[in-house]
Amino acid sequence: MIELVRNVRLWFAPQEVRKEGGTPDYRFSLANERTFLAWLRTALALIGGGFAVDQFLPDLRWGWRVGLALALLGAGVLCSLRAVNHWIRCEQAMRRGEDLPVSRFPTVLSIAVAIVAVAMVVVVLVGWEG
């Protein structure tokens, strides 16, 4: 938790990242940046999915519709915040020459998306009539 707070401070302080370690090969930094952007696209897709559930399933019961939309939007927010946090942790690890950080997040996100998908199937089969 303390580390998370420290990382949040780093998000806004570029000079502090440069304080330690050496600059890695620029290609590694660019690869890290592309990974960050890929996660950001995932986040935007989840947010778009939240809008789409709200807009294109008008016959759904209110609770289901709002619940699914909020689940997707929440996943989008988590995904984008995690994207920047993981990017900065990778950047620091590369500067210090350490191993890249491991993460449980991809598993959690996969399970969450699977749950939403199953919920959609149930909604389509059972709860379509509002």
Binding site: L10, W11, F12, A13, P14, V17, T23, Y26, S29, L30, E33, F36, L40, A43, L44, I47, G50, F51, D54, V66, A69, L70, L73, G74, G76, V77, S80, L81, A83, V84, W87, I88, E91
Partner: peptide, 25 residues
Amino acid sequence: ALTPRHATAATLCTVALAVCAVALV
């Protein structure tokens, strides 16, 4: 390299869009 401020700005735009979405839903 990408600066943290730049990355954070991109992330905050995304999060703000999601907050708007919650308000709209």
